[in-house]
Write a protein that binds this DNA or RNA. Structure first.
Lengths: 97, 97
DNA sequence: TTGTTAGGCAAGTGGTGACTTGCCTATGCT
DNA sequence: AGCATAGGCAAGTCACCACTTGCCTAACAA
């Protein structure tokens, strides 16, 4: 649903998580935690990141695959491509690509 | 700022306003109010829409021009084009357009 | 089996944002 | 002038969301 997508993107921490997954796909929860702390200076609990990942996953922006006791998270940019086209003028050159 | 842009898009009423402005550009506040009520069944106060328009305008998605006692609102899709490119994989075909 | 690591579940709290209500200013018409 | 229309300002309420705390389960290693 579009509602979940925009709500997922509305939080800056979740956008930082997406930034991390663009750099390196298939990260685990603890990896994302430590990289958010070291690179962006965010001091958040593991549960906070876990909840953010759940929101991103329900929005279709992140897909997760469980492997043993690890859970790897992969980015999925496909939902992003629809959100801009919604408000493009009919006849605008960018819409015809 | 990117923060304002995503926050502006996070509200469904604001997205409906953008939908209205795509259909007909340069609408006034009362026009947007009546069309939101008639087409989307939203029952909102004039002030609510006014505040939404202020948010959209501070995000750069709407530009307003005052003319007499009327204030016309125009859509500006330019900020939308940056938000997708942020998370496109380097090397993805869509990113090279 | 004991300990450690990776992750999940659930309740509670604080702050922000959407919406309303009430009143005020400004433009245009007669 | 007087009145109606188009819009703005400010305070107050309410619900939702981000975040924490505490405890629990599952997998691997010693």
């Amino acid at each position: 649903m579009a509602e979940d997508l925009f709500k997922a993107l509305s939080d800056p921490t979740r956008r930082h998580i997406l930034d991390e997954l663009v750099e390196r796909d298939g990260q685990t929860l603890f990896e994302i935690c430590t990289r958010l702390v070291s690179k962006h200076g965010l001091s958040l609990t593991r549960q906070a990141i876990s909840q953010h990942l759940a929101v991103l996953e329900s929005a279709g922006l992140v897909r997760s695959r469980r492997q043993g006791r690890y859970k790897f998270h992969d980015l999925n940019t496909e939902p992003l491509e629809h959100i801009v086209n919604r408000w493009l003028r009919p006849g605008t050159p960018e819409g015809t690509s």
